[in-house]
Design a protein around this nucleic acid. Structure first.
Length: 574
RNA sequence: UGGGGAAUAGUGUAAUGGUAGCACGAUUGACUCUGACUCAAUUAGUCUAGGUUCGAAUCCUUGUUCCCCAGCCA
């Protein structure tokens, strides 16, 4: 796949800068008041336990975007690899690929939480020595019983009164592997009666005898998220630690650890995660779609994963624009996927080469065109970009047009070809349909037409008009292709809206993938490579799929063009 | 029924005491060698009830609704 390096920039719209969200306002204010000595250091901290999706895209564009917008700003890519049983190197690799593809650059700032394990251990020892952390040997069951509930306070663990010396000894032996998984934890000593459950003596370390993908068997105790995350931010000198809303309840704990340690203390800021209509976003559901075979892998073009969208043909710029345009807020909202598709079309319209391709071919014979003659017509590559130049497209006696572009008995407002009617073949000639050939089942298999030589190139010297212009390909020179048509993966705006007893999979769209074979595309597409994007005129945007090998061409339909005729048709049949 | 957040057109998002604006969508129309693009127009909103004020989406009080938290996940 071709690499696509995008400049890191703030995607400002229409000359006037995009509006300032509450986080950017906060950052700007911090700069004005010199809170961090003028520094802006953010971070994107994925756990390498799955593939990135468009929801992560929002977070990435936010943290990397804010860093890029501020002089000297930096955004770290930091793997939050604190749980060896869930994490894998291949995920870490895909995360880098996706962020880079989106157009962001972490420079030298690639970090791993696991590199800080020793430092974190030392910090933990400090808290133990201060009497602010203790080794607890409650079982799982006891532990949850002692925690209390949302409405009732918890009870203090009997281990809570252990001496500092004993805690130090026990904690060291935890690290040295003397104990079994689950037998002991290190907990912060805060307040078992706190109305915030996160403050009820939270776990800092648990024992997991498992190999970590980076540290191997060096450790058998691993820090929990709450303990680790603030330290990671602090160690790296992060100023603004931007995360999603569900961590709001964790902020007091984030603050508590850093306050007690009296070390660099970043500001945690929470925002609402992205939800999209007709889409699921959770890692769990995405995984289930893959594992249960509802889609063909993580990079299935119907997936909301970054790799899926890339394969589908989304441009990184369109995703960045989208992430900027949806804004940032503190309440959950569901974005209409039409906005994403709008950003996509807007970007692709500017950048895509136009070509002609026929999805469902209908043979057309031009009766008055010389038998074996081939005429090469000039076609514009991108009307919006003169620099894109022109190409030659072959025209001959036998052509294919789109089945949808002919109707024997046209309804009102159908402007395309029908018996006796004249239309234009784009960049070629005006043709008039003279005869319809059908098979024994009454199916239309072939059209006979005549062309007007005077309309060469598509213009009538007498100034007469036609109601429509069709795309076409010349039969002899056309390349055959497989084309995959996608629709939304789900039939419901909110896939979660289901009757009792069923789950979101009952809303899967059975028509989300339609594979067309025997499609005919113009010969210039023979040179197309995986990842190349085109506009198939009058149809939509298409992207070459890596499945195509040797002579075989495979395209994914990224998105259709807006289609006013389809709407008219729909309202007519209703 | 504990605590923490949050409510502006169908959707998303501005307006931080002074004309409720923008975008997407939808609907019309113009243009057109893509029924695309572009352009123009229409559509439609401050959760409720009080209060402060010359003036409230914004400040105060009340109610309602929604989201998050009881992993040794992140």
């Amino acid at each position: 796949m071709k690499s696509e390096n995008n400049k890191q920039e703030s995607d400002s719209e229409n000359g006037k800068g995009p509006s300032v969200d509450f986080i950017r306002a906060m950052v700007a204010d911090d700069i004005k008041t010199d809170r961090w000595g003028g520094k802006v250091i953010t971070r994107f901290p994925p756990e390498p336990n799955g593939y990135l999706h468009i929801g992560h895209g929002k977070a990435i564009c936010l943290s990397f975007g804010i860093a890029a917008e501020n002089r000297g700003g930096r955004c770290h890519l930091r793997y939050d690899d604190t749980n060896p049983v869930k994490e894998e190197e291949r995920y870490a690799d895909s995360i880098q690929e996706d962020i880079r593809w989106l157009g962001w650059d972490w420079g030298e700032s690639l970090f791993y939480a696991s590199d800080y394990f020793e430092k974190m251990y030392e910090y933990a020892v400090i808290l133990v020595k201060k009497g602010l952390a203790y080794v607890c040997d409650l079982t799982f069951e006891e532990f949850s019983e002692y925690r209390g509930t949302l409405t009732t306070p918890g009870k203090e663990s009997p281990s809570r009164t252990r001496s500092v010396e004993e805690n130090l000894d026990l904690f060291r032996r935890m690290r040295e592997g003397e104990f079994e998984d689950g037998s002991h934890v290190l907990r912060a000593k805060i307040d078992m009666k706190s109305p915030n459950l996160n403050m009820r003596d939270p776990v800092m370390y648990r024992i997991i005898h498992a190999d970590h993908f980076r540290t191997g068997s060096k450790w058998c105790i691993y820090p929990t998220y709450d303990w680790a995350h603030g330290l990671e931010d602090s160690i790296e000198g992060v100023t603004h630690s931007i995360c999603t809303l569900e961590f709001e309840n964790h902020r007091p704990l984030y603050d508590w650890y850093l306050d007690k340690l009296a070390i660099h203390h970043p500001q945690q800021i929470e925002f609402a995660r992205l939800e999209l209509t007709y889409t699921v976003m959770s890692k769990r559901k995405l995984l289930q779609l893959v594992e249960d075979g509802h889609v063909n892998g993580w990079d299935d073009p119907r997936m909301s994963t970054i790799c899926g969208m890339r394969r589908r043909g989304y441009s990184p710029g369109s995703i960045r624009t989208f992430c900027r345009r949806i804004g940032v807020n503190k309440f959950n909202s569901t974005i209409d996927i039409a906005l994403l598709e709008h950003c996509l079309r807007e970007d692709l319209n500017k950048s895509s080469r136009r070509v002609m391709a026929v999805l469902r071919p209908l043979k057309v014979v031009i009766d008055n065109f010389p038998e074996s003659e081939v005429e090469w017509m000039d076609a514009v590559n991108n009307p919006g970009d003169p620099d894109a130049g022109t190409r030659k497209v072959p025209f001959s006696k036998v052509l294919y047009i789109e089945q949808d572009d002919f109707m024997e008995d046209p309804p009102r407002k159908f402007f395309r070809l029908s018996p006796g009617r004249e239309v234009r073949l784009r960049y070629a000639y005006f043709i008039t349909c003279t005869e319809v050939v059908k098979d024994e089942h009454g199916q239309i298999v072939e059209l006979h037409c005549t062309y007007d030589p005077a309309t060469h190139g598509g213009n009538a010297p007498d100034g007469r008009k036609v109601k429509s212009t069709l795309h076409w390909v010349s039969a002899d020179q056309a390349k055959s292709a497989e084309i995959r048509l996608y629709e939304h993966l789900f039939t419901q705006e909110r896939p979660e809206d289901v009757a009792d007893g069923s789950d979101y999979t009952s809303n899967l769209n059975p028509n989300s993938l339609k594979v067309l074979t025997g499609c005919m595309v113009e010969p210039s597409l023979g040179k197309a490579e995986p990842g190349d994007r085109f506009q198939f005129e009058r149809l939509g945007y298409f992207c070459v799929d890596p499945d195509g090998k040797d002579e075989k061409l495979v395209f994914n339909r990224t998105v259709t063009l807006r289609d006013t005729w389809a709407k008219v048709q729909k309202s007519q049949t209703r």
